[in-house]
Amino acid sequence: MLITETPSVFENLFLSLGDTGVGLFLAGSTASFAAVESLHLLGLALLGGAALVTDLTVLRVVFRRADPARIAAALFPLLLIGLSIMVVSGVLLVSAGPLKYWLNPLFGPKLLALLFAVVAQFLLYPIVLKWNVQKSVNLSKVIAAASILIWITVAVIGRWVGLI
């Protein structure tokens, strides 16, 4: 992300997260920041577990006797809860020091990969409903495989934000 002399509206908005009460609090409290990071990881377990099991079901690796559409529907609430926890904790983590993320070349790619992952996951649901149509079955499997790879990519880029 470029540093320009006159920051864009978006840049100001992003950086202003650091001026919020909670942002300042987290910046000053190691234990609280670590707690939010921990929440981010627990959210990852829920989101990752739900997404992975849904996708593996479509790929006929697990729950081979079940209708994938029903498994997908049954795990959707858990996936949403996991995703919500990650988004909320993620915004909190940024608010503790937005400049660090604004300057990090991996942060933009992570958010882009996250967008792709969410789109792929949500695209899966209406298509997998037509499990009796061969074309839909094939397309579902392709999306499910891609979904797993994209979610893993989001997680890996996320980890590497802190390693470069």
């Binding site: 650091g18 910046a27 190691t30 920041f33 670590a34 990071e37 503790a96 020091g97 937005p98 400049l99 660090k100 300057l103 990090n104 934000v161 802190g162 390693l163 470069i164």
Partner: peptide
């Protein structure tokens, strides 16, 4: 990077 410590104000 990403150590959760203070942001780099000197950046």
């Amino acid at each position: 990077p990403g150590d959760g410590g203070p942001g780099d104000a000197a950046a």
